[in-house]
Amino acid sequence: MTREEFEQAYDGLAAALDAAGPGDADKLALLARLALVQAAASADLAAFEQALAQAVEQGGADDGSG
């Protein structure tokens, strides 16, 4: 993956996180780190963004659980 592609992935992931709604801060931070590592590894980003959005929604449902 080129730097340009990685940076485009960065923008896409940021948009996915923005669109995902509220979530547990620690889980979101972990997901963001996983997303970056995944993006850098040239994974299937569209599928990952979708999974990320779903995971964030679940994270939101877990709010307050610690």
Binding site: A14, A15, L17, D18, A19, A20, A29, L31, A32, L36
Partner: peptide, 9 residues
């Protein structure tokens, strides 16, 4: 928030 999460990541 999305950019902040990724920046911090």
């Amino acid at each position: 928030r999305g950019y902040r999460l990724l920046r911090d990541a």
